[in-house]
Design a protein around this nucleic acid. Structure first.
Lengths: 351, 351
DNA sequence: TTGTATGCGTTATCAC
DNA sequence: GTGATAACGCATACAA
């Protein structure tokens, strides 16, 4: 019945371990041993026969069956808050690459910014026996931590911390990044500052960066006029325009600069500046977190802080694999430092 | 032995169909039927018991085991040429979304532009019993078509055709898109044209768009001065600068315009224009294929042709699911029309 | 209508 | 050293 291969319709030609065993004239146990426990000694002659059969049939074990048996799937689950976000994609790239190199495949679950689906995503991925998670979540659903530990599978957080979650964490060194930006601008002679961020709302990188800005501002107090943090609500461009106008009024004749918390904010600030008829780097200094391919093309070129996104992804799966391999370390934090890419938007103000 | 759950170490608390059966006081066959064949009539009383047990235990079938048994995994394999490419990501987004809604999960394999890994990717994904493929490949490895039909699994091509591959194909209507761009520019009074593309090298969308440009140029011959196609090699910025200078010389006093084949090309053209000290929309008209978040910020704003990327992804999995459900249709082509987003870079030339 | 038994492709525990 | 054989969790043909 198994041998009947109708030539008309191409049937499933999956080569199984039984086929190999039959061709090699051994039992499947032997084949399995040959494949998995290279240590145990097989008689050379048999080893050769098996090896040849495997090669001839181009046999590849079914990861599904393996997963079912051993409980390990060589799969990594990646839950991402918003695949539209270039940062997420960059991390994904690094992660997928590192995973591939380690013989793992990535299963993706995109939340589309729908926080309530976090549990759903983890659930779905877990059901496929992923061996661990990389989470770039919204942190909206606090039950995620429980959900995760319920499965007892390792997880590493990327970019965003999760309250009540004891796990490895890989991210940009936000404090240092903001400090670099402020130091750079102050050093170039800018003195009135506005830090623009998406609504903080307890999202950890936003919280940290805003706090870092306040700290840095305090550190540079004697070289700075004033500093303010503005939370730019999603669609409210008018408010952002107004914040910039306020900055201008506040600054008077002193050179004013804006610091944007990420690429999306950078976009919005650039648009706002354009609406006001200002020119970046002339009417207002600028540094934005997140390097982008278009940074050099906007105005006179935008100074940015580049995140080592690739490394973030790579290190995230690195951490994860260590956990998967059973190492029982305490939760680690991996903070990567950003790199300031200086362009004309932050050059010393005229006069 | 199964019942011994050491309280010290949280053991695998995977709920299996056996657990449900035990709790409900029925056989696992009954549970399975309740879950899969809602049609077959169970005695209401038993159905209720099973339902309650499933709910109480929060039972979720193991997709792995199901896949092993039925040969179907509710998994879709997505092979992407370069996850760094915003277009790929946009498609991925749409695809992942549609897949999720249909109860499928996406397994991702990124080629990182390494064409020789196409087979590897398909192989890896296939081994996980993905039910079908969505391919946005490089087309470098011609063995891919064979590889695919070997597995007998449906595939749909996105954006790039594959030689010798009979499969569904979803893409932007390249011909129409280029025609829109040319018509728009000609209508606004631009007359000398340069079409800039990445090296064509047999890559189908590049071929098609370049061809479409030549056709459109021919159609508008009486309103156009001249038209040329330039293939911008990867790192060779000087050549691109020279091409633009040639365009200028050729055009003389006539208004000259550049058409960029995609977002990456747009970036390079914009950089080149900046190097030459020109201003888009004034010294040179411009339209680029691919809408981007930064299009409005470069120069006076870049006119673009927006691809319906989301729909492309969505329709791709739509096609795929139809195939998976066994419909035996002839290969289809789904061509989606782009939308011209007019900005100042293509406004009628001064004078 | 429900239960029993078998097999999907592996790995692992026994015997031999 | 090697080969039966029993799981892994599930779906289904068949028996009841």
């Amino acid at each position: 019945m198994k041998k009947s291969a109708p030539a008309t319709e191409q049937r499933e030609l999956r080569v199984t371990i039984d086929d190999v065993a039959r061709v090699a004239g051994v039992s499947k146990a032997t084949v399995s041993r040959f494949l998995n426990h290279r240590t145990t000694r097989l008689s050379p002659e048999i080893a050769l026969r098996v090896e040849k059969a495997v090669a001839d049939l181009a046999y590849m074990p079914s990861p599904m069956a393996q997963a079912l048996k051993r409980g390990r799937s060589r799969l990594i689950g990646l839950v991402v808050a918003d695949i539209t976000n270039p940062f997420s994609v960059a991390v994904l790239r690094g992660a997928e690459d590192a995973a591939q190199k380690a013989g793992y495949l990535v299963m993706l679950f995109n939340l589309g910014n729908a926080g309530e689906r976090e549990r759903e995503g983890i659930e779905a991925l877990a059901s496929y026996q992923v061996e661990g998670f990389i989470l770039n979540t919204l942190g909206a659903d606090s039950s995620v931590a429980r959900e995760l530990s319920r499965h007892g599978k390792p997880a590493v957080l990327v970019d965003r911390r999760l309250m009540g979650m004891q796990a490895d964490f890989v991210s940009l060194d936000n404090t240092d990044a903001v400090r670099q930006a402020v130091t750079h601008l102050v050093g170039n002679g800018w003195s009135e500052f506005l830090y623009v961020t998406e609504p903080v709302a307890g999202v950890s990188p936003r919280v940290e960066r805003a706090a870092a800005f306040r700290t840095a501002a305090a550190e540079h107090a004697r070289d700075m006029g004033g500093s303010l943090v503005f939370e730019a609500a999603e669609g409210d461009d008018a408010a952002l325009d107004q914040a910039l106008l306020d900055l201008k009024r506040r600054a008077g004749k002193k050179p004013k600069a804006v610091l944007a918390s990420n690429a999306r904010t950078t976009l919005r600030v650039a648009e706002s500046v354009a609406r006001l008829g200002w020119v970046l780097g002339r009417d207002v200094g600028f540094v934005g977190i997140d390097e982008t391919p278009w940074a050099s093309l906007v105005g006179p070129g935008l100074t940015t802080i580049e995140q080592p996104t690739d490394d973030i992804g790579r290190l995230a799966v690195g951490c994860l694999l260590e956990r998967i391999q059973g190492q029982d370390l305490p939760p680690r934090q991996v903070l990567l430092t950003g790199r300031l890419v200086a362009r004309a938007s932050s050059q010393p103000p005229a006069r």
